[in-house]
C-alpha cells in the first residue's frame, strides 16, 4: 500500500509540473481591428497579434465570477479596467511601437500577450 500511495503522489507531482509549467504558448490570433476575448479562468485567445500603429479594440467578455479576474490591466498602455460580469467591456489601444505587451488580471495571476508586428 505504501508503495502505491508514494507512486501516486509522485505521479501527481509530475502531472502538476507537466500540466502547469510545460505548456506551449498558444499560436497568436491575428487581429486587424477588433477581437473578443473571453475572460474565463484566463483569457481566450490569450495571445493576439496586431499590426503596429493601428487602433485595436479588445472586447473583454467576462464570464468568470472569480474576483481575481474582475480587472484587466495593460500596464504599458496604463489601463486598469473593471470588467462587469457577463458583460462585454471594450478597450481600444493603438500600439505605436513593435514588441510584446502583456496584459493580466488585477492580481497578476492570469496573463495574455499582445504581439505588435
Amino acid at each position: 500500500m505504501m508503495i502505491i500511495i508514494n507512486f501516486t503522489i509522485l505521479a501527481l507531482i509530475g502531472l502538476t509540473i507537466w500540466f502547469f509549467f510545460i505548456k506551449k504558448e498558444p499560436t497568436a490570433k491575428k487581429v486587424q481591428d477588433k477581437v473578443t476575448i473571453i475572460v474565463e479562468g484566463g483569457y481566450t485567445p490569450s495571445v493576439i497579434e496586431v499590426p503596429v500603429g493601428k487602433a485595436i479594440t479588445l472586447a473583454f467578455h467576462r464570464k468568470d465570477a472569480s474576483s481575481c479576474l474582475e480587472e484587466v490591466m495593460i500596464p504599458d498602455f496604463q489601463i486598469r479596467q473593471f470588467l462587469p460580469l457577463h458583460q462585454t467591456t471594450e478597450i481600444t489601444i493603438t500600439p505605436k511601437k513593435l514588441g510584446e505587451y502583456q496584459f493580466h488580471c488585477g492580481m497578476s495571476m492570469f496573463f495574455g500577450k499582445i504581439k505588435v508586428t
Binding site: F19, K23, E40, G41, G42, T44, S46, K63, S66, F110
Partner: peptide, 8 residues
C-alpha cells in the same frame, strides 16, 4: 475549473 481549462 475554468482556470484548469486554460491550464492555469
Amino acid at each position: 475549473f475554468s482556470g484548469l481549462k486554460n491550464r492555469s
